[in-house]
Simulated assay, not measured.
Amino acid sequence: MRRLPMAMIVFAGVLSAFVYAWAQQRLSGLPRATAIPELLISLPRFAQVLMAGGDRYLAANLAGFRVLVADTSRMSAEDYAVQGKLQRDIAWFNPAHEDNYYIAAAILPWNGQLDAAQYVLRRSSEARTFDWYPLFQYGFLFYHFRKDPATGAQWLLQAVPRVKTQQDEWALQNVAALWIEKGYQTANAAGMVEAMAADSPPGAFRHYLQVRARRLRDLATLQNAVTLFRERHGRGVETLQDLVSSGLLAELPKDPLGYGFGLDASGWPMLNATPSSTK
C-alpha cells in the first residue's frame, strides 16, 4: 500500500483542524442544554476521515470511542439522534465493526433511532458473512418494531446457513416458524413450515416442524369453517363447538402440542398461547 506524502498528511491535518474549528464556531450558538459532551458535534464523514489521516478504519474507531464513552443514563432524544448519526458513519467507514452493531442493536431502536439501527445491522450483515447474529437482530427489528413478523422470519432464515452448530440452526428455524405463523395467512404459513421441515435433516427437529405445520393446517380448517358459518348464519360462532353442532366439522382437531385452539376477541380461531383444552 502506498504511503501518503508527508506534505499531504500535514495539509490534511491543517484542513481537519480548520473544519473542526469552523464546526465548533457554527454550532456554539445553537441551544444544546441537554446534549452531553461526548456527543456535542457530529462532523461530516469526509472531515472525520481527514482527522484520522485518511484512514477510514481509524475514523470508525474514533467515532466508536465517542459512542462507547457516552453516558446513556443522561442522554436525551437529541443525544440519541447524534449517536444514531455517528453509528451510521461507523457502519459506512467500516461495516464489519463488531462493537458498532452490538451497540446499535442494544440501544438505538429502543430510543427512537430504528432507521439508524437497521442501517447499521444491514451493513454489518453484508460485511460479516461469517456472523449470523446481525441478521438475527435485523430480523428482530422487523418483528418487534415494524410489526412485520413475516419479513423478520425471512431474515432469520437467511442467517441459518451461517450458524456453526446444529442447536443454533434449529433455534433459528424454530423462531422463524413461530414468526411465520404470526405473519402469513394460516395456509401459506403451514406450507412454509412444511418446506422448512423438508429441508431439515431426519430426526426430532424435522418431526417438530411437521407437527407445527399440521396444527397450522388444522387451524386453517377451523378458520375456513368459521367463514362458512358466518356466511350461512349471519353471525359468528360463540365457541368452536358450534362448528360441530352445525355440521360443518365432524369433530374438532386435537392440537398435538397440547395448547389447543381457541377464539380471539373477534371470534376468529387462533392457536392458544398456553396449554388448555379446546373450546
Rank of each mutant, 00 (worst) to 15 (best):
I36C: 03
F18K: 11
L219N: 11
M270W: 04
K147Y: 11
Y133V: 09
N224P: 03
F65C: 01
E238S: 15
R212W: 15
G236D: 07
S16Q: 09
E251R: 15
R2G: 08
M75L: 12
G267N: 05
L114W: 05
G191C: 09
Y143N: 10
N272M: 09
Y138K: 03
M51S: 12
Y184A: 10
E98N: 00
A273M: 12
R206W: 06
P37Q: 04
I36N: 02
R215D: 12
Q241C: 01
H97E: 01
G84Y: 04
V69L: 03
P256D: 06
S245H: 13
L216V: 05
R215I: 09
D148L: 11
Q154R: 14
P109E: 05
D99I: 01
A250F: 05
F136E: 13
Y20W: 12
S76H: 05
P275G: 11
K85A: 10
G203D: 08
R128E: 03
T151W: 04
V193N: 10
P95E: 00
F205S: 07
I180D: 02
P275N: 10
L249E: 10
W22P: 00
D99G: 01
H144Q: 14
V211K: 15
W179H: 07
Q48P: 00
L4K: 14
M192V: 09
A23W: 08
H233R: 14
Q185D: 14
Q24C: 06
M270Y: 08
G247I: 12
G84P: 03
W179L: 14
Y80W: 15
F140E: 11
N188E: 13
A195F: 07
R2Y: 11
L156N: 05
L58H: 03
G236E: 07
T221R: 15
T165P: 04
Q87Y: 00
W110E: 14
P134W: 02
M192G: 06
R235F: 04
L39C: 03
G191D: 11
Q223R: 15
N174C: 09
Y138S: 03
V82Y: 00
P256T: 07
Y57E: 09
Y57F: 04
P134E: 02
R32A: 12
L240Q: 07
P269Q: 10
A127Q: 02
E238T: 15
G236K: 06
R230M: 08
R214A: 15
A176P: 13
A59H: 02
T274R: 15
G258E: 12
E126A: 11
W179A: 08
